[in-house]
């Protein structure tokens, strides 16, 4: 509770508070903004608040049961199907934005992972993270999620091959800035 109150005063909820005041104001003066925007907001809000907490709980549970360290042990110079398989699994267990994957790419490079697999890792990281898939299924449906996964998988594997083909003889290296 204390955290929430302090957050309101610190400004994280500032926009929401302002919006509420605006709604109150426009209701008093009978602007159409009040009723339409309020109806939109309430519709979205009730729909999300009903199951969003569940999704985060699921993500938390997945996080404690699938330690990334165990998968990381399988990552190495292996570049066949098995190598691709393990980098994709490792990527799926991660969370966060793409730029958070760059330092990991550097670590993979140090572990003498192939160029192809490093870029496959980046592709899988950006599009197939399990927390994201849970959200995708929740908001866009299982069919969309399955189809997008099926189409995306070959796309970033091909990107991995193309990157390796292009960079192989060009003294490519990954830096740690």
């Amino acid at each position: 509770m204390k955290i929430i109150i302090s957050k309101i005063f610190l400004g994280e909820y500032f926009v929401v508070v302002l919006f509420g005041l605006l709604l109150l104001f426009s209701r008093c003066f009978h602007f159409s903004f009040g009723s339409v925007a309020a109806k939109n907001f309430w519709l979205f809000f009730t729909e999300m608040i009903a199951f969003l907490p569940f999704m985060f709980l699921l993500i938390g549970i997945i996080d404690v049961w699938f330690p990334k360290e165990k998968v990381e042990r399988h990552i190495g110079p292996e570049s066949g199907i098995k190598g691709i398989f393990w980098v994709i699994i490792l990527a799926m267990l991660q969370a966060g934005p793409l730029y958070g994957a760059f330092p990991v790419a550097y670590i993979l490079w140090k572990k003498s992972c192939s160029i192809k697999n490093i870029f496959i890792y980046l592709g899988a990281f950006s599009t197939l993270k399990i927390p994201m898939l849970a959200f995708e299924i929740g908001f866009l449906g299982l069919k969309f999620s399955i189809l997008r996964t099926l189409f995306t998988l070959p796309v970033f594997i091909v990107i991995g091959y193309l990157m390796e083909y292009y960079l192989k003889n060009r003294q490519f290296k990954i830096n740690n800035p």
């Binding site: 909820y13 926009v15 929401v16 969003l52 907490p53 938390g60 996080d63």
Partner: peptide
């Protein structure tokens, strides 16, 4: 541990979501 982690993530994202 997992449940607390999940809840904390939710509370962190809540203001951004409401905005």
């Amino acid at each position: 541990k997992g449940l607390i982690k999940g809840m904390r993530m939710f509370l962190n994202i809540l203001p951004v979501l409401l905005n």
